[in-house]
């Protein structure tokens, strides 16, 4: 059936709340207001204030409460309004949730799901527009995923709730209104996915950059370059085999990542290829990332700072020597 990304997240949450009394949703404005991105609209009336909990403006406090609830046997879904604000909760996520299984010798696990919006493109200013997925993808003990399709938005939440360890889900703000036909949405939190097969170059990307990569591939196809588009889906642990397999087919790679280039996930992808696939590369890899500035508010500056379809096309042409 056809649904929007927002409806897919909402349907997944609704299903989980109905199916499992241990599941509850907590975050800023998720209750009476219905969620900053209207994902939980109506849930407060349906499930009540105990399971749809409006939190005070303290990420450290309510994410910590979620970690505690998970330790106590519940299945909390914690919504952080954007990844920018999650920095206030880094201690709870990185120093607590991620390490308890290890530090307790396997006695405790933290089955918390932390959802957060990420990315730019909606003129929300620097403090609401950054892409910091790589900060979390750096940390052992976390599983980090980025649904880029409506089907993954529908399927990744139940898969995350089934995990015994903390899962961070990044929902790009530019995707909520995307509508797609969704068939079988069941999925794993392990594998990358080839969204468009191709033979000349691999465009490796994730999250909000996937639609741009696919548009670039369509443009390139009319110019005679057959690009493969690989959606990472899972940012930690990276599906390195899928990345390598794609590049072994195409011998060229462009990585598109809305994060800043320095210290980026794109850098991790390229470094992995240099280690594992150097002799399969027929051209130096290229990264298409955001300009290294705080994401601007002004529309034209924001557009200029973000990866663009034209920028991806140009990078691909360059590595193809075209």
């Amino acid at each position: 059936m056809r649904m929007s990304y927002r409806e897919a997240v909402r349907a997944a949450l609704h299903e989980a709340l109905v199916a499992d009394p241990r599941v509850f949703l907590m975050g800023e404005d998720v209750g009476r207001y219905g969620g900053s991105y209207a994902v939980s609209k109506g849930f407060y009336d349906e499930f009540g204030p105990e399971r749809i909990r409006d939190a005070p403006l303290s990420e450290l406090g309510f994410v910590g409460a979620g970690v505690g609830a998970a330790l106590g046997g519940l299945r909390p879904v914690v919504e952080v309004m954007t990844v920018n604000f999650s920095l206030l909760a880094l201690d709870q996520i990185v120093n607590m949730a991620a390490v308890y299984r290890h530090m307790s010798g396997g006695q405790f696990s933290v089955p918390v799901v932390i959802r957060m919006a990420t990315g730019a493109g909606r003129q929300l200013g620097a403090q609401h527009s950054h892409s910091l997925e790589n900060w979390y993808a750096h940390v052992p003990g976390l599983r980090v995923v980025a649904p880029a399709t409506v089907a993954d938005a529908r399927g990744m939440l139940p898969a995350a709730l089934a995990e015994p360890d903390p899962v961070v889900i990044f929902e790009h703000v530019g995707l909520y209104n995307v509508e797609e036909e969704v068939g079988d949405w069941a999925c794993d939190l392990t594998h990358a996915a080839v969204r468009r097969p191709g033979s000349d170059v691999s465009i490796v990307t994730y999250g909000g950059s996937l639609p741009k990569a696919l548009a670039a591939a369509a443009t390139l196809a009319s110019g005679g370059i057959d690009a493969e588009v690989l959606d990472l889906r899972v940012l930690r642990p990276l599906d390195r085999e899928a990345i390598a397999a794609s590049v072994r087919r195409t011998h060229r790679v462009v990585v598109v990542d809305e994060g800043w280039k320095t210290g980026s996930l794109a850098g991790e992808v390229v470094a992995g290829l240099a280690e594992e696939c150097l002799y399969d590369l027929d051209a130096a890899p290229r990264r298409v990332c955001s300009a290294e500035v705080p994401i601007p508010y002004a529309k034209h500056l924001e557009d200029a700072a973000l990866p663009s379809v034209d920028g991806i096309v140009a990078a691909v042409r360059e590595v193809c020597g075209a």
Partner: peptide
Amino acid sequence: PAARRRAAELGLDLTGVLGTGP
């Protein structure tokens, strides 16, 4: 790198070969 490996497989000396890549 890929061309280097292929040349080694073919036993080909690449000096004088015209490059068309980036």
